[in-house]
Write a protein that binds this DNA or RNA. Structure first.
Length: 813
RNA sequence: GCCUGGGUGGCGAAAUUGGUAGACGCGCCAGACUCAAAAUCUGGUAGGGGCGACCCUGUGAGAGUUCGAGUCUCUCCCCAGGCACCA
């Protein structure tokens, strides 16, 4: 007998509650609310850049997980601040505008309107009162303020430097934006260009950025990516005098113990000493080689397996250990940007040097031998890079590699002042200038007499003028150079005529501090309200994609440290907890528009509702791993919500059934523990399993059995949970008044337990016994089990393993 | 090459951290309802064998520790991601 009941109509329920939450203002805070919060919890997710394609299902996946975390903590009684905003400056947005022939000033607001609609529809618990938009003057004037704070703190510097130039984007890129020699945006081969650029001195913070990683509650992948990127390596700087020249070549090496094996030297082709030490007869060859190298782009140069090339400079250096004259070469396998831009080549113990020496017939000497020694004079057929003891190294023979490193540096340092220990980092200073239009203008005025002068804070913002023609060109100069009225100004210091810096800042500066701004978003007179900042920061939970591990997340940490050091902040790490979510794939591959395998969130919401979509996304697989989107899978969560709906509508009064109640308490425990740990897939499975129990055998559910389930489900599927909760007579609703259900540990376990019985480690039966049954009792019951008895008949019991309440294993021989 | 993850049914995945492998869901199969279909509901579903109670095999491969291994140890293979002529 089935009773005809009202059908579950997700869209109607969702619209109703989205309006209702707005009306009640449950997610919208005033600054006073924020200041008066008793138990603040700052729940952050990575704000989107509003492309014209609309929100990607991957964004929604990220936001759903973060939103569940936020809603959970709100139900646990915390004051949760969950803001959202738009990261709309930058080359992404500008390139898209160029493509469709529109002006980003006009395009971005439309995109933001689209994004906002979907962000509301999916059920994000956002505080729209504290939205930020990086392209609005009320935000970017403070981005400029941040720039000035760093400038005045001595952390911003303008210098002529070889920079990564993307010929397609027509701008310089930060090192982090160059992937294997290609532009991370457009995959063009990146070239080297020398331009005057603004840099933030992030390298000063290399050790601190590294040290702090230790104490961060962050996903391991992210911590490792940052550690790799900082790339600390310990070694020494060693001086090699150049014979017949008044010059010294300084190298960085991690293997000073191999100094006696340095048989030649290599400088980067761009090394400043090359011109002065190359002999005249070699200069033609040198010039030719350098021309070749510059012509080659970074991709080609960075290929690891290509043949070694290089040119002899005609001059020699003196090996400070052996006093031998060793030839000096240039080769493109030595990079100017790393270490000293020069190396001592030890072909015996470095694979690259070995290859080079073989190619050009340079001497190869063994100076390290494996501890269980062979003949130290035997020729090497490949570089030996393992551990061992020093040989052919004079007084150092017999020392281990580790001891040798110290001893050689100490000796050289004392004897000739020719060495010192040195820690080198891979991390480079952050180039923040962009020769583009769509970004915050750099708040600097160039004066012929005073040099670069910061725009006084009271003159901020430096507004970005509306440029009709904002296309970048090949000149290396920003399109803002076309706005003469705008860039012509007077020097704030001396009053003479001057011009504004026409570059804009890297988009990562906009996104590097937005989380600091959210609480203060309504303050138009201050970047950061001290009271709000103290109350809400640092961020309690940050969830986002790991593609930002070395870009956004590194810059955000650096800016926080820098602002701490200049006295703006009283903490120096921005994110207490960070979790990297996984990727949503489609048929095992990344969703791509070109393959037509793109899932549009608004379609899914229209057809299935936001609650079903949220559940499905989080049910796909482990949140930190991601999963494969298969449209048929939506049926699972949809059926679950349907059955829940029907179950609640058909439920009757009465206390929970004993067995069901035990299951309920187990479910509460599991969901309570797994939700904040972001183990959403298993928490959802537990709720589904519980509903199955409640409905098992077609029984009519009791209200008391379902009401707590609605609360557990509320973070995941907030709309239907609210609706059904209201239908149970709770007019106040869940979000606003309800509290999270508790579980009773006593009710988790039944009086009896099913105890598996093994014979020789193989399962032969299960006996139902009181939970605290003794070994003897269980043993007796086991012997009474027909199947167990049969297997015991084969021999005598030699050993009994009994785990109370868990297992009985009988070893029969 | 180095550093992270990971490898379990047709598929996505679970497994209280050494104690009944495959929870939950998709798909599939059978049945109910229906003139029919969709939707919904009920049952089944790791592989092999047996009418059956049951038995054998099984967590990338191989070895080891253990009463007992998806879980621990060693060797190796494969997949995904990060870094990479970084001295």
């Amino acid at each position: 007998m089935t009773v005809e009941t009202e059908r579950y109509d997700p869209r109607a329920v969702e619209r109703k509650w989205q309006d209702e939450w707005d009306r009640r203002g449950v997610n919208l805070f005033t600054d006073d609310d924020l200041k008066n919060a008793r138990d603040p919890y700052y729940n952050l997710m990575m704000f989107p850049y509003p492309s014209a394609d609309g929100l990607h299902i991957g964004n929604i996946f990220a936001y759903t997980g973060a939103d569940v975390n936020g809603r959970y903590w709100r139900l646990r009684g915390k004051d949760v601040f969950e803001p959202i905003g738009f990261d709309a400056f930058g080359i992404h947005s500008e390139n898209y505008a160029l493509k469709v022939g529109a002006n980003p000033n006009d395009l971005i607001p439309q995109n933001i309107a689209n994004f906002t609609r979907v962000l509301r529809q999916f059920g994000g618990m956002y505080d729209w009162n504290h939205e930020v938009n990086t392209t609005r003057v009320d935000y970017y004037r403070w981005t400029q303020w941040v720039f000035l704070k760093l400038f005045r703190g001595g952390l911003a510097e303008r210098r002529e430097a070889p920079a990564n130039w993307c010929p397609s984007c027509k701008t310089v890129l930060a090192n982090e934006q160059v992937i294997q020699g290609l532009c991370e945006r457009c995959d063009s081969a990146v070239e080297q260009r020398s331009l005057p650029q603004w840099f933030f001195k992030i390298t000063r913070y290399a050790q601190r950025l590294l040290d702090n990683i230790e104490g961060l509650d962050w996903s391991e992948v992210t911590r490792k990516a940052q550690t790799n990127w900082i790339g600390r390596s310990e070694g020494a700087r060693i001086d090699f005098p150049v014979a017949e020249h008044d010059a010294v070549i300084n190298v960085f090496t991690t293997r000073p113990d191999t100094l006696f094996g340095a048989t030649y030297m290599v400088l980067a082709p761009e090394h400043p000493l090359v011109d002065s030490i190359a002999t005249p007869d070699r200069s033609a060859d040198v010039e030719e080689y350098r021309a070749q190298v510059t012509a080659r782009d970074l991709v080609e140069r960075q290929k690891v397996d290509k043949e070694k090339t290089g040119v002899f400079l005609g001059s020699y250096a003196i090996n400070p250990a052996t006093d031998a004259r060793i030839p000096i070469w240039i080769a493109d396998y030595v990079l100017m940007e790393y270490g000293a831009g020069a190396i001592m080549a030890v072909p015996g113990h470095d694979t690259r040097d070995f290859e080079f020496a073989e190619t050009f017939g340079l001497p190869i000497v063994r100076v390290i031998a494996p501890a269980e020694d062979e003949d130290p004079s035997a020729p090497l057929t490949e570089a030996y890079v393992g551990d061992g003891v020093m040989v052919n190294s004079g007084r150092f023979d017999g020392l281990s590699v580790a001891d040798g490193k110290r001893a050689v540096v100490d000796w050289l340092a004392g004897e000739k002042g020719a060495a010192r220990t040195h820690v080198n980092y891979r991390l480079h200073d952050w180039c923040v200038s962009r020769q583009r239009y769509w970004g915050p203008p750099i708040p600097i005025i160039h004066c012929a007499d005073c040099g670069p002068v910061p725009v006084p804070e009271s003159d901020l913002p430096v507004e970005l003028p509306y440029l009709r023609d904002f296309r970048p060109d090949d000149s290396g100069v920003s399109p803002l150079r076309r706005a003469r009225d705008w860039f012509e100004t007077t020097c704030p210091d001396c009053g003479s005529s001057a011009r504004r810096d026409t570059d804009v800042t890297d988009n990562f500066l906009c996104s590097g501090w937005y989380f600091l701004r959210y609480p203060s978003a309504r303050r138009d007179d201050l970047a950061l309200d001290p009271e709000l900042t103290k109350k809400w920061l640092p961020v309690d939970s940050y969830i986002g994609g790991n593609e930002h591990a070395v870009l956004h997340l590194m810059y955000a940490r650096f800016l926080t440290m820098a602002l701490h050091d200049v006295g703006v902040l009283d903490f120096d790490e921005p994110f207490t907890r960070f979790r990297a979510h996984g990727l949503v794939l489609s048929e095992g591959r990344k969703m791509s528009k070109s393959r037509g395998a793109v899932v549009l969130p608004n379609d899914i919401i229209e057809r299935f509702g936001a609650d079903t979509m949220r559940l499905y996304l989080l049910f796909l697989g482990p949140y930190e791993q991601g999963g494969d989107w298969q449209s048929t899978g939506l049926q699972g969560p949809r059926g679950f919500l349907n059955r829940l709906w029907q179950g609640v509508l058909a439920s009757e009064e009465g206390p929970p059934d004993g067995e069901v109640e035990r299951e309920l308490h187990r479910t509460i425990k599991q969901v309570t523990e797994q939700t904040p740990a972001l183990q959403f897939n298993t928490a959802i499975a537990a709720m589904m399993g519980y509903l199955n129990t409640v409905r098992a055998g077609g029984r009519t559910p009791r209200r008391s059995e379902l009401e707590p389930l609605l609360l557990l489900l509320a973070p995941y599927a907030p709309h239907i949970a609210e609706e059904l909760y209201a239908r149970m007579g709770h007019a106040d609703g869940i979000f606003g008044n309800a509290t999270w259900p508790d579980y009773d540990p006593v009710k988790l376990v039944g009086e009896t337990a099913e105890i598996p019985v093994q014979v020789n480690g193989r399962l032969r039966g299960v006996v139902e016994m009181p939970r605290d049954a003794s070994e003897d009792a269980v043993l007796e019951a086991a012997r009474g089990n027909e199947n167990v008895a049969r297997h015991l008949a084969a021999g005598t019991v030699r050993k009994v393993i009994f785990v109370p309440g868990k297992l009985l294993n009988l070893v029969v021989g």
